[in-house]
Design a binder for these strands. Sequence first.
DNA 1: CTTTTTTAATTAGGCGCCTAATTGTCAGCC
DNA 2: GGCTGACAATTAGGCGCCTAATTAAAAAAG
Lengths: 196, 196
Amino acid sequence: MPFLMLKDLPRYECLLEAAKKFPDLDPSAAEVFLNLLRTGDEVFRVVENNFTKHGLSQGRFGVLMLLARSSRTEGEGKSEATCLPPGPLTPAELADAAGVTRATMTGLIDTLERDGFVKRESDPADRRMMPVKLTPKGRKLIEDILPGHFRIISAVMGSLNETERKTMVRLLNKILQQASGLTPSEAAHSGHDHRN
Amino acid sequence: MPFLMLKDLPRYECLLEAAKKFPDLDPSAAEVFLNLLRTGDEVFRVVENNFTKHGLSQGRFGVLMLLARSSRTEGEGKSEATCLPPGPLTPAELADAAGVTRATMTGLIDTLERDGFVKRESDPADRRMMPVKLTPKGRKLIEDILPGHFRIISAVMGSLNETERKTMVRLLNKILQQASGLTPSEAAHSGHDHRN
DNA sequence: CTTTTTTAATTAGGCGCCTAATTGTCAGCC
DNA sequence: GGCTGACAATTAGGCGCCTAATTAAAAAAG
């Protein structure tokens, strides 16, 4: 999540000091904000670092995961373990599930296909569709990576007990809810909507 | 923090189910992990969205902030409100403070200078140095953006009370500590950094 | 049936981030 | 003096992400 966050966060006293010049600055809110992005960045780097060893990135890994989750239940009736519909997925479905644009997904699939991890097929029923399938090589890669990936996640969260984990999830979701309400382009100011 | 995280996180039951196939998967750890990255991503998008309206990005904003914090105290003795040494900063100092490589910083300064927000100067004492200074235009931009930026942060964190904010910061720091120990540069013994 | 609209995927072009290699400068040592 | 190593900044090339424009095909409207 390379987003240029400060390596060394300002101390809380600095935020208090800065708030004197900026009445809109809420020191404790800013502190949570900075720590959230800083920690997210660091955790992101740790897992991405692991992917790099296998020639992947977070984005490429995400695509393979979605495909693996989808195709694991192929032929079986339900998708209990994957919570995803079975069968190959289209670039549009992958983009929506991953939260990136379709143009971005095209690029990801391009390189994944070039490296032999996935394969584009054609849908006879609708020739606009280009369903994507995992190749055996891609399946092997994801299965090789996953155990280590899970161990890393477990290690990173290892200092939190179950109660703390529940608390984290609850508070993160509160923030996510608030942020999601502000995502649609210009809901910037608190409460005022001046669209023409 | 565009890192391709799942738009809809797997439900906890799905993680439990998946753990049957992967003994290394710790469901509650994975849940915190997914929520952390998802929330970080969303918050990142909200603030970045605001920057975009002013023709900035998170990275460009970060550089301007560092320069503003540094130059605000120029001439005065201390840097209480900024916690940064006064005067212009070199690309290397900016890169270290921002947590990006020097090559990345060169690119950021390139576009910021092209747009007239900063200016490269030359250091007569050491001609390798190219200290960067904020232009009046750059200073005006950052001062125009900051109030809205602070209001957005305040709004995003608005649903957390002071106790919850303290808890978040404490738990995030626990995670950050663990994660920092797993980054390769410091993870190896002796903490020496061979980058560059 | 033909035209228009919608939709899937891609292309084109830009920025931010990276690593590796390069250029220019300083500093130490013969 | 001249050589060598360290360091600042940059360049070159790649990936991931974006928006806007394009192409092709299906669906809807006349």
